[in-house]
């Protein structure tokens, strides 16, 4: 019994049908963690990208080192660190939020690189042309550079959204009841790991296929010449 649903081990299909609602509740948690983690990664990544682009090396260099450090160390350890160390500093978050934060932190290193690469891919001539028209730097960024960078940035971010989704099971170590954790609990109690774990695999395949389709759609439908911002 989990989330108020009991499993029926009388046969293969009854078992599958009886655990589906439980797994779908787990799936919902997985999706929530994905979206929140992604949102954090988007914001933190932007911050890191801005710091790395800072004109003074005093800021840019540590920002680059931090990005490298985050990217080169395992999500699992970062999660443990946040989970066990933050309370020592008086910051106690629910396990789910700690997990989402860890996902966001890990992927901020990747998204910051996406922003940087996207902005750098806009030809230099565009900035120079804007300066020749004596456009203010801020306006140049929002009206010239950013609109052209967006079509490059969005599909790359989409790929990281999928990666985050595949990393959510790591949160099970701090007791988050995401899909894989739920499947494992069912396995522990029924001694049948095969069915729940296989269903989780299939659900993941479906999700990533849908996401891949969505990213391809974005890639072909975003105008390559740029997205004008209002």
């Amino acid at each position: 019994m989990l989330f108020g649903y009991a499993w029926d081990t009388s046969g293969f299909w009854p078992f599958v049908i009886s655990i589906m609602p439980i797994l779908l509740i787990g799936l919902w948690v997985t999706l929530k963690a994905t979206v929140i983690g992604f949102a954090i990664a988007l914001v933190l990544g932007l911050l890191l990208a801005a710091l790395k682009a800072a004109p003074t090396r005093l800021i840019a260099w540590p920002a680059r080192a931090i990005t490298e450090f985050i990217r080169d160390t395992p999500l699992l350890i970062q999660l443990f660190f946040l989970f066990y160390v933050l309370p020592d500093f008086g910051l106690t978050l629910p396990a789910f939020m700690t997990g989402a934060l860890a996902l966001g932190l890990q992927y901020s290193a990747y998204t910051s690189e996406v922003y940087r690469a996207g902005l750098e891919a806009v030809p230099r001539g565009q900035r120079e042309a804007a300066r020749a028209l004596s456009m203010a730097p801020g306006r140049t960024f929002t009206h010239i550079i950013l609109p052209q960078a967006i079509p490059r940035i969005i599909p790359a971010l989409g790929n990281y959204l999928v990666s985050i989704m595949k990393d959510v099971p790591v949160l099970s170590v701090v007791t988050v009841l995401e899909m894989l954790n739920v499947a494992r609990i069912i396995g522990d109690r029924t001694f049948n790991y095969l069915v729940p774990l296989t269903i989780v695999g299939i659900l993941y395949l479906l999700l990533t296929l849908i996401a891949a389709w969505g990213i391809r759609w974005l890639d072909t439908h975003l105008p390559s010449h740029g997205v004008a911002l209002k």
């Binding site: 595949k166 959510v168 894989l180 296989t198 993941y204 395949l205 990533t208 296929l209």
Partner: peptide, 21 residues
């Protein structure tokens, strides 16, 4: 597609827990 489309931890648990079944 299968190994890129699912999570590493799912694969690990599947090999370790489900395969013996």
């Amino acid at each position: 597609e299968i190994f890129r489309g699912t999570s590493l931890l799912v694969q690990l648990f599947w090999l370790y827990f489900a395969l013996p079944v």
